[in-house]
Write a protein that binds this DNA or RNA. Structure first.
Lengths: 233, 233
DNA sequence: AATGGTATGATTGTATACAATTATACGAGA
DNA sequence: TCTCGTATAATTGTATACAATCATACCATT
């Protein structure tokens, strides 16, 4: 009993629907499908060599992931993220990543702690070599470890959702070399606070880590690709 | 442009799929479908007078909402809310309601402020008369006003989701008369902080409001209907 | 009696056909 | 020329048919 794995995940890589889901998601995140672009069931079905049924089911999931918006009887459109959305997400994430770090301090396993240390070590290595792709990957993984370590399926799922959502932005942000290094350092400090079982400090550092990431983004003006928020603020 | 509403929502009440989704969700939240119960496509389809197709699509959405878990080629099972889930949700909500109150302090409109004051006035009236149903309704509405007032679609949607999720628990908790009164008082204080434009105080009060609600729930042992968390803590 | 394998039924996965809705084009009337 | 309405095409919504997978029962073998 109670051996159910993870809810909220699309884990069947081998069903057609699962593959279609992964593919479209990848194409949206990579920028192949642009903001507000309409996705047509038959076109995507033909491209992947499947019928409309699995495509439609994938659409329903992508909608709840927030990557597309479905207007009934009309179509599926890639959702745009506004600058205001990004700001709100980072404010929310700041609090929740803090809570996550606090909980992880109590609940983290030995294996997770080790992977976290290894992650930071590797990130420092790749930073020195200027390997941007690997650094982005390690950055993602650091947060995933933290999410898993907090031992709360609810919080884990929520943070993974948000993480996913701003991936498009983050990919570009980390391309700024200096922020990559700063981010590594902040990860290291968070890790050390957790290792020292200092939950208060871990929480505050994680709070600040998000705020710094956002500030950097604003400073570099990179978030502007997601539309102007001036009309909304 | 940019008049799209909310992401992550299933807003088509009029399509079969939308109705099926709402119906199953309601039945899960109301307890008609119990934890670990298997939901069969044809059975539900026949019950609602529709074919498997809209049922399947609704399933895919319910899975991402976290209400059911789909095991490929096997079936769809109702996921239960454990006591740990409830606890986690209240911790998350504590932070986010705080953030919401802070943002609302800045963004609330005159109309929203007035409705909030009226809400508290009415709640006091019904508390004196012992009208439990109206008090529950007003309690829900108070939070909805707050969510709308923060002027963040992201946060609003997130909080409404959680609010909905723990509705079963909350309904019972408010049945405790003393808590109903205490809750009203806390609402009043939050309202006054917002009116006085004291964002810090509003945030702290909203934080504490959630913690109190949770503590009360634990004290009354009401959350135990959601299964034992002893094995998970 | 216990075990293993095969046949049968039940259930989900996918494809396709048809219905309903929406978008587009074109022509009539002013 | 402009506007409105209708016809047509394109697209999504739903139902159904068929394929694949999984669960169950029964029988043969030991």
């Amino acid at each position: 009993m109670n051996n159910y794995d993870i809810k909220h995940t699309v884990n069947d890589k081998y069903s057609l629907r699962g593959r279609v889901f992964q593919k479209i998601r990848e194409d949206i995140l990579s920028g192949k499908y642009k903001e507000n672009e309409e996705l047509k069931e038959v076109a995507i079905g033909e491209e992947l060599g499947v019928s409309r049924t699995p495509v439609r089911e994938a659409f329903r999931q992508l909608e709840l992931e927030g990557l597309i918006q479905i207007i009934p009887n009309k179509g599926a459109y890639v959702t745009g993220i506004t600058a205001k959305d990004v700001k709100d997400i980072y404010m929310i994430r700041s609090l929740l990543e803090g809570l996550c770090a606090r909980m992880a301090t109590e609940k983290i396993t030995k294996e997770q702690m080790e992977e976290m240390e290894e992650n930071i070590y590797l990130a420092e290595f790749h930073a020195g070599k200027g390997h941007m792709d690997q650094m982005a990957e390690l950055d993602n993984r650091f947060h995933d470890i933290l999410y898993e370590a907090c031992d709360s399926k609810m919080l884990e799922h929520l943070l993974k959702d948000f993480h996913q959502y701003v991936l498009r932005v983050r990919q570009k942000t980390l391309a700024t070399n200096s922020r990559g290094n700063a981010s590594n350092n902040e990860h290291k400090q968070i890790m050390e606070a957790i290792k020292a079982k200092d939950a208060d400090r871990a929480e505050k550092l994680a709070n600040q880590h998000m705020i710094n990431a956002y500030d950097n983004m604003v400073k570099n003006g990179l978030y502007e690709i997601y539309g102007d928020a001036s009309s909304e603020e």
